[in-house]
């Protein structure tokens, strides 16, 4: 299974796979940022792979100078009964990334969550708004430099009178 996957992907995206991680019997591919849409399209539509279920998309803040953020795609193939992860490194200076909503519709809310919590902007997303925090909130709470207790007065409360 692993060989099949690695070969299939390498055959097509040799130059865009930055790293292949095989940890605890689970495969993770680190993909170049500008190729994520093509890789996802291939994984979803290839007859032998058919990764048809997007389980989750989440963000990671590594808090480094370069490639501070990561976006992790957790996908499952009903045909192969196999789960892989895709990771994309996103730099703080260029927080834009292609949306995969055109491939998996369920990506809509996951990408909104990632945008809400980390401020990563998904291009061509149909409705990129905050999902948990109020619309007027200005910060991104899951970033490492955001204080746990929040920023005073950033969220308005009703007046007590």
């Amino acid at each position: 299974m692993k060989e099949l996957l690695i070969n299939k992907l390498k055959e097509k995206f040799q130059d865009f796979i930055e790293e292949i991680i095989d940890y605890s019997n689970e495969l993770t591919f680190v993909i170049s940022k500008n190729k994520i849409l093509d890789v996802c399209y291939f994984l979803k539509n290839n007859e032998d792979l058919k990764f048809d279920y997007l389980v989750d998309i989440c963000g990671v803040d590594r808090f480094k100078k370069e490639n501070r953020f990561e976006v992790v795609y957790n996908i499952w193939s009903e045909k192969l009964k196999y789960r892989i992860r895709l990771r994309v490194k996103v730099d703080e200076k260029d927080l834009q990334l292609d949306s995969v909503t055109s491939i998996w519709k369920s990506a809509d809310w996951y990408e909104r969550e990632t945008y809400d919590m980390f401020g990563i902007v998904f291009l061509n997303h149909p409705d990129l708004r905050r999902i948990y925090m109020p619309e007027e909130f200005e910060y991104f709470p899951l970033r490492k430099d955001f204080p746990l207790i929040g920023i005073p007065d950033s969220l308005p409360l009703p007046r007590r009178n």
């Binding site: 948990y132 204080p147 207790i149 929040g150 920023i151 969220l155 409360l157």
Partner: peptide, 15 residues
Amino acid sequence: FRSYSVVQGIDQFVP
């Protein structure tokens, strides 16, 4: 929940 999203006591906005 000592957290950014939870009000630390409702007496901040209702008596």
